[in-house]
Computed example of a mutant assay.
Amino acid sequence: MNREEARLELDATTLRPQDASPEARAMAESDPELGAWLTKRTAFDEQVADVFAASIPAGLRESILQNARKPAKRSMRWILPTLSAAAAAMVLSWTMLWPVNSEMPAWQAESLAAVTKVEYGMMKVDHASHDLEALKKQLIAHHSPAPGRLPGTVGLMPVLACKRIKVDGRPASIICFEIQPGKEAHLVVVDNSGLSGAPPQLKPQFTNSKNWSMASWSDGGQTFLLATTANEAELKKLFGLA
């Protein structure tokens, strides 16, 4: 088995590593590059699986199995396909909407995953307020980072809420702003001490993934990700670049 064969086998079994052959697992342990790729790929697949699991209605599996055990009725031929189609539609919709990809630095992938959950109501905010300073105090009181300074007009957007999260195993924060009517922009703040893949100081990097536009930068000991489903031009205006 060569490295590419092992990679393909490991890629197909990230969520069920016990299904990979001993040879492929041994190669991942002995090959640092392959091992690093597997760790990153597994983390990405687990994030996607968590979102899929959260989006499926509670009890759907049990309902399907319970109905399958009942005596066949004429209407049953419609029930199971309908339930299965509903579950499939949810998975498909999340596949289309989920913006995280395995090419992102781990900190950015984790940040964007949390932002996506907040955006689509799958994760509740901790505090709602139109006062940025009040939200900062809430975050600091709960030992989560609050932004020291923000570039351009980022901090002048109407503020909505905040959420405490973890990124790279360390406390991080999300502050939700309104970038334009009906569109939010979510600012992730994380301590960048030893943070792998942190963006450069005071120079925003702009990227896109699915329907998300993002800017990332560092300022002193903090790293930021500002993500929105508004178009990139609106995002760049905040930095005086459009």
Rank of each mutant, 00 (worst) to 15 (best):
A6L: 02
R7F: 02
L8N: 12
L8T: 11
L10V: 02
T14S: 14
T14E: 11
T14A: 12
R16P: 00
A24W: 03
A26W: 06
E29R: 10
S30R: 15
A36L: 04
L38I: 07
T39K: 13
F44L: 05
D50Q: 12
V51G: 13
A53F: 03
A58K: 06
L60M: 14
R69N: 13
R69F: 09
K73S: 13
K73D: 08
W78Q: 09
I79C: 07
L80W: 06
A87E: 09
A89P: 02
V91Y: 01
W94I: 11
L97M: 13
P105K: 02
W107G: 05
A109K: 02
A109L: 03
A109W: 04
K117S: 14
D126A: 12
A134R: 12
K137F: 02
H143Q: 11
R149K: 07
R149L: 01
V154D: 06
V159M: 03
A161S: 13
I165P: 00
D168R: 07
G169L: 03
R170A: 09
A172Y: 04
I175C: 01
F177N: 02
A185Y: 00
A185K: 01
H186Q: 15
N192L: 10
S193T: 15
K203D: 15
K203N: 14
M214A: 06
S216Q: 11
S218A: 12
S218E: 02
D219T: 10
T223D: 05
F224A: 01
A233Q: 10
E234A: 15
K236Y: 13
F239T: 07
